[in-house]
Nucleic acid binder design. Structure first.
Lengths: 215, 215
DNA sequence: CCGCAAACTTGCGTGCACGCAAGTTTCCTG
DNA sequence: CAGGAAACTTGCGTGCACGCAAGTTTGCGG
């Protein structure tokens, strides 16, 4: 259903995309973010600059995607993998925490690099929006189809919460706190803690949605 | 506290910004979106193209902001205006519906124009993110400071829900439905209905947050 | 009323995103 | 195994975003 043998075209495309990702990240880390032109990346991947742009709409996207590429699919899979018995809220929370705590192979240096440059950090935070579609799919599955876009709203909310958690986690390294002006400031714990804390307020919404179909 | 008489500088800045907004929208509607160059807009507003770019990071942003400019502040104000007794979820929902149904003075033609061109529609949908900061502020006020970023998460979720509602509302005019592949499709009712429907799943989260501080 | 510091505007230069219209490769069907 | 359609790549051209380093305006003590 999902994999009618990929075919040469598709394989080549993925290879090119991957080559571009890798080249973008490597060159940026080697020579410094602003000393890498699109031409260099395309060159290193063996394609024309114009083709590079058929795959990525910006340098930041290419670089960041080297790290965030398949988180989307992984998260959805991780949710789907939880037994059907557990609370949806818990399934989602744990799946998210799980996927954001390993950070992949040599991804740690890369992640440091990315979260350290403002432009890349921004792109990185934006990439959380990418988990929305697959999350929508798995959530919709568990909810059957109660109320049509309930699943979309919940998935989008999760994506937002993750973004906020990441922002909070990066706060120390971050620059402007903005017009928050609350009262006390939390000392920004570990990433898993931040994620759980950010997702906690959404749990009641998940519970209610789940209750609606299963009593 | 909020308005120590604005001063000449600030007034000039707002005037310029407004002139740019207006020029951008007017020219785009008169001559067609892609027959308006940045130079024309800057020119019509009486500033250099470089200055235009100090105010807006893209043509789309300038045009769309002519319509969405103060929705952000209005929504926050509308929430704050509701009596303290009502359910937070209701206050927010009604405030949002209220602010998205009038659409401003001659804004109807403009809105049609915007939602009709893909690039502008995208920018328009993205602009919903702008309601997040002010919403965070008012929500945080009602919640005191239970759990620090609860307010941020809820505000961000509302913004997402609004975005989704708008997307649903524009669906008929929209192009690609994406990989939704659910089952049945809803015939996309009126905008207020869409908004209420999208915000409904979040109500339990608001209730829980409210309960947490007031019993 | 002066003059300085901070804010804002502007011209210039660089690299970039992306539409378009060939050229090339993959895929499918007879 | 043709042969043509569909997908993908590429060069070119245009307009754009934005850093930088003057020039100009506003605001604020003295």
């Amino acid at each position: 259903m999902t994999t009618p043998p990929p075919g040469l075209r598709e394989r080549k495309k993925q290879a090119t995309r991957e080559a571009l990702r890798a080249a973008a990240l490597r060159l940026a880390m080697e020579h410094g973010l602003d000393r890498v032109r699109v031409e260099d990346i395309a060159d290193a991947a063996g394609v024309s600059p114009r083709t590079y742009n058929n795959y990525f709409a910006s340098r930041e996207q290419a670089i960041v995607s080297a790290v965030t590429a398949d988180r989307e699919a992984r998260i959805a899979a991780a949710v789907a993998a939880r037994p059907a018995g557990v609370r949806l809220a818990d399934a989602v929370t744990e799946a998210v925490v799980e996927q954001y705590t390993d950070a992949g192979e040599g991804g740690h240096e890369a992640l440091l690099f990315i979260t350290t440059r403002p432009a890349l950090r921004h792109a990185f935070l934006d990439s959380t929006a990418g988990i929305e579609p697959p999350l929508t799919a798995v959530i919709a599955e568990r909810l059957d189809d109660t109320g049509a876009h309930t699943a979309r709203v919940l998935a989008a909310s999760v994506a937002s919460a993750v973004r906020i958690a990441l922002e909070g986690w990066l706060r120390p390294a971050g620059a402007a706190a903005g017009a928050d002006a609350g009262g006390l400031v939390v000392p920004s714990g570990s990433l898993p803690d931040q994620l759980r804390a950010a997702l906690l307020p959404l749990a009641p919404a998940f519970d209610a949605a789940e209750r609606r179909i299963q009593g």
